[in-house]
């Protein structure tokens, strides 16, 4: 389980970038690139090493009030991102 008070930070070996040609966010790392789906890209773009998981949930809930599974989507994504070592938590 991801602690809502923890602060996710992008692994310093990864770079998140919007790619016009692919119309999505990608994560770039040594000799590799992951294409992110819309929600993954959006969530990661909120990860700045300052906001907690709870902050991110609150901001995205405010921005997309009509989506009701947002909190669980974010938690689920954080677990994946951590397993993939895209983000670390402090």
């Amino acid at each position: 389980m991801i602690d809502p008070a923890s602060i996710p930070q992008l692994n310093k070996h990864f770079r998140l970038q919007w790619e016009e040609a692919q119309d999505c966010y990608v994560l770039l790392y040594p000799e590799g690139m992951v294409k992110l789906n819309e929600s993954a890209g959006l969530i990661l773009s909120y990860v700045d090493g300052v906001k907690t998981v709870a902050n991110i949930i609150a901001e995205l809930t405010e921005r997309f009030p009509q989506v009701d599974s947002i909190a669980s989507d974010i938690e689920e994504f954080m677990a994946t991102a951590s397993a993939q070592r895209w983000v670390a938590f402090s």
Partner: peptide
């Protein structure tokens, strides 16, 4: 410009 993002 064509979309290349990884460069070696």
């Amino acid at each position: 410009q064509m979309g290349a993002a990884q460069l070696g």
